[in-house]
Design a protein around this nucleic acid. Structure first.
Lengths: 189, 189
DNA sequence: GAATATACGGGATGGCCATCCCGGTTGTAT
DNA sequence: ATACAACCGGGATGGCCATCCCGTATATTC
């Protein structure tokens, strides 16, 4: 079908690609989505042209960065679903997502709806964390561990609260307090 | 002291000023802080120059818009503090702030730390809503209505969760659900 | 060790936007 | 009615940034 006999990419190209990916992961994590592409290129030791050739768009770069983390998270979700009762699974995964987002400002911003849409990024990345969380919520509700009326959108909103800038990045204690408040609030009483 | 014999501003200037203020309030509320000044000017029926002459900076314009709403809110806080028990006062004011933010996207964004710093805007506006909420939190904790460990920063984070984009602007039901979750989570158990 | 496709760097381009500026206009005081 | 300060509109300016382009360099193949 494709008349193009695809040759393996050049060695320097592969090297640069991973450099960029690593630099992007670090900078998105610490600086957030608004970090200029130029900075990522500088940190990776390449020109801006190289970045946009490998990843046509900043959003595509972000999606690529997300790919592996997302895969890990969905795997984690599947393990929890299989081994824990629905309530525990949901609350544990919720906390895991919050902690993940806390270490990754770009992810948190995306979750909060600032910058790129995380749904589409996730789909580009071929991994659906949201879907897992949604399923776990429903299961936990059926099991009576989480209040009935709560919507998936409600949960996402509460999650973004746990990730708000007010909760300092390094302050795991604050994060745990907030998670506790939300989870206790979500429980059936 | 001021050698300037301040004359009353011209009538058209006053008219334009209030036009701009009204337009800005509407647009910040519906579109958020990222609305271009140009749009505000257009909606107000004036040139962009007129806007920046009256309000030297976009942030100053936002602070001016906030002024009256903030005054109302602090007044409300003072009434609640005087007439209700500390727990009720705190929870009621918390909900009031969330609903206020829901009707005013600019305010919500500012609270969430996106765009301008609301603290400084509030201080420019001469009204300290944060201070009131903080005091009410402490009182509610002393009265045993709210868990002890909770920080004011925690509360702000949770509040911004109630205002997340996921909770659709028109959906008062969703807002109430999320508020309930958070308030129940905050209560001493 | 040539020949050639591939990839590189970083300047050029274009869009967006807040703020500033100035030639022209209008309210106001006399 | 006149004169002057105050004010207006909106174009000009400058900064920031993602993306594109192209002359140059280099990995790969034969």
């Amino acid at each position: 079908m494709t008349g193009k006999p695809v040759r393996a990419p050049r060695a320097d190209a592969r090297r640069n690609r991973t450099s960029v990916l690593r630099a992007a992961a670090e900078m998105f994590a610490t600086e957030g989505l608004s970090v200029p592409v130029h900075e990522i290129a500088r940190r990776a030791g390449v020109g801006t042209g190289t970045v946009s050739r490998h990843f046509p768009t900043k959003e595509a770069l972000f999606a690529a960065v997300l790919l592996d983390r997302m895969a890990l998270l969905t795997a984690r979700a599947d393990v929890l679903t299989a081994t824990e009762d629905p309530g525990t699974a949901f609350f544990t995964f919720f906390a895991a997502l919050v902690h993940e987002g806390a270490d990754h400002r770009g992810l948190a911003e995306s979750l909060a709806g600032v910058g790129f849409d995380i749904e589409s990024a996730a789909i580009d990345a071929g991994s659906d964390v949201s879907g897992r969380l949604h399923a776990m919520l429903k299961a936990a509700q059926r099991a009576g561990a989480v209040r009935g009326g709560i919507t998936f959108a409600d949960v996402k909103a509460l999650m973004s609260g746990c990730l708000a800038r007010e909760v300092a990045p390094g302050d795991a204690g604050a994060r745990d307090r907030v998670i506790t408040v939300v989870c206790d609030g979500l429980r059936t009483r």
